[in-house]
């Protein structure tokens, strides 16, 4: 079985977000880039499967749409345990554009399961996996919180509004994963880090793709007013305020 994981690089989730150029662009000066947390969990699960199933998982490939500057993120994925990587050499402008690039790069290749994160910690499109699946005319299952392979069959749990379904899925398909797929992202081992540079990283030219959306301006949330504080002794007053002033309870 061959597994592909789509990865993007996003600002570290602890980063304070700032904008420049009249709030038209993200201020990248103090940003540390990381693998999108959802994608990192997807990759972690793929590696876990390979560790437990051995040769039944023939290969783990990661693919990224990004400029050369995103290669450290790709190398991190290789250090964690991916076998090889593909980078589509394009600036990831918006979801449809990225999904189109991915689909073009993937369609001539052969994968059984394509993993994508449910959301991304940058522009929160929650969209690339589903768009790519449609462009590949491949089935997709969303919000997967567990993925197992037994005797060549793929079993998944997916969260739906109001519950969890246990499903058997036929391959090939696009698995759009969320938290729970793996507990914590894998920390790369020292040997993995040193071997990352020796693993193949194929750079492919981008296809001609349209952009359907454009972020024209950003804004930060309005700062909150001062917090009105109460003590253990006057909890009743708080309840009174919530009831009478704020009318919330």
């Amino acid at each position: 079985m061959k597994i592909l994981i789509c990865i993007s690089d996003v600002p570290d989730t602890t980063t304070k977000i700032k904008f420049t150029n009249d709030n038209k662009e993200l201020d990248q000066t103090e940003i540390q880039w990381i693998i999108n947390p959802w994608d990192e969990l997807a990759l972690t699960r793929a590696i876990e499967l390979k560790e437990s199933l051995g040769e039944k998982i023939e290969s783990i490939t990661v693919i990224n749409v990004g400029p050369a500057g995103s290669e450290p993120t790709i190398r991190k994925a290789l250090a964690m345990g991916a076998d090889n990587a593909i980078r589509v050499d394009a600036d990831p402008k918006e979801s449809y554009f990225v999904a189109y690039q991915l689909a073009e790069a993937i369609k001539s290749r052969d994968f059984d399961i394509i993993l994508a994160g449910l959301d991304s910690a940058d522009y929160n499109g929650a969209s690339v996996g589903g768009m790519m699946a449609e462009l590949l005319d491949m089935p997709s299952v969303s919000a997967i919180s567990a993925l197992n392979i037994e005797n060549g069959k793929v079993f998944i749990n997916r969260e739906i509004e109001g519950g969890t379904q246990k499903l058997e899925a036929q391959t090939p398909f696009v698995a759009i994963v969320q938290k729970g797929i793996a507990i914590e992202p894998k920390i790369p081992a020292m040997r993995g880090i040193m071997m990352a540079r020796t693993k193949p990283l194929e750079v492919v030219a981008p296809a001609n793709a349209d952009c359907l959306t454009e972020n024209i301006v950003y804004e930060l949330p309005q700062p909150k007013g001062a917090c009105r504080k109460f003590t253990e002794e006057n909890v009743n007053e708080l309840v009174d305020v919530l009831h009478k002033e704020a009318k919330l309870i």
Binding site: P11, T13, Y123, C211, T213, N215, V217, Y218, L220
Partner: peptide
């Protein structure tokens, strides 16, 4: 919403 709720963006759809 963008950046997991830390900011907003005005998006133009073409």
């Amino acid at each position: 919403k963008v950046f997991t709720g830390k900011a907003f963006a005005d998006v133009k759809v073409s």
